[in-house]
Simulated scan of single mutants.
Amino acid sequence: NSLIVDLSTTRVLGLPLLVYVFALVVLIGWLVLNRTTFGRRTYAVGGNPEAARLAGIDVRKHTLMLYALSGLCCGIAAVLIMARTTTGSSTHGDLYELDAIAAVIIGGTLLSGGRGTIIGSILGLLIFTVITNLFILNGLNTADQLVAKGAIIVVAVLLQRRSLRSHT
């Protein structure tokens, strides 16, 4: 318990330790996606699983490894949220998936797969966080925020589709 509280209260060079944990996870993720065979295979599987299979990638095994990696990242996020709130609750992550989807779409990741970057997702996260903070500062209730976030996702997806059609 004390270790988790220390994680949220410790500051290094004026920044919370949580920021450094986040930066470390982003750096490792960037390295894995951009500098390893695993990352190239991930883009291949995401872009066209059948072509990836024909290229010799075990798509089922790779997808399973991606789900395991996703679970690991969810576990890290859960510990960080628990450290930040100093409580554990099964509802702490409610509706975070909507924010995560919106952030990565705004950051340029295709819902259809095969294209996206961690840096783009981080920029999308920052933009979406600013939008969410503006909603809160302007007193929008939760239901209106969810509708607005959903609308942002729909508009971003439509813009992606339009952009993809113009490039083909």
Rank of each mutant, 00 (worst) to 15 (best):
N1R: 10
S2E: 13
I4P: 01
S8H: 06
R11P: 05
L13R: 13
L15T: 01
P16H: 13
P16F: 05
Y20V: 05
V21G: 06
V21F: 08
L24H: 04
V25R: 05
V26G: 05
V26A: 12
V26Y: 05
G29W: 04
L31E: 03
L33W: 03
N34T: 12
T36A: 06
T37L: 10
G39N: 09
R40E: 10
R40C: 04
Y43V: 07
Y43F: 13
Y43I: 09
A44H: 07
G46I: 00
G46L: 02
N48Q: 08
N48Y: 04
P49G: 06
E50I: 07
A52W: 00
G56H: 09
I57T: 14
R60V: 15
L64V: 10
L66V: 15
Y67I: 14
G71E: 06
L72I: 12
G75K: 07
G75A: 09
A77Y: 04
A77P: 01
A83H: 03
R84P: 01
G88D: 12
S89L: 08
S90N: 10
S90H: 09
G93K: 07
D94V: 14
A100M: 11
I101N: 02
I101Q: 06
A102G: 01
I106E: 02
I106Y: 04
G108I: 05
S112D: 08
S112E: 05
G114M: 09
R115P: 00
R115I: 14
R115A: 11
T117M: 02
T117W: 00
T117A: 02
L123V: 15
I127F: 15
V130M: 09
V130H: 00
V130R: 03
N133K: 11
N133R: 14
L134Y: 02
F135H: 02
I136L: 13
I136D: 13
N138Q: 13
N138F: 11
L140N: 02
N141D: 15
N141Q: 14
D144P: 00
V147M: 10
A148G: 00
K149D: 01
G150N: 08
A151K: 02
I152N: 01
I153V: 14
I153Q: 04
A156F: 02
Q160H: 13
S163P: 00
L164S: 14
R165D: 06
R165P: 00
S166C: 03
H167L: 13
H167Y: 04
H167E: 12
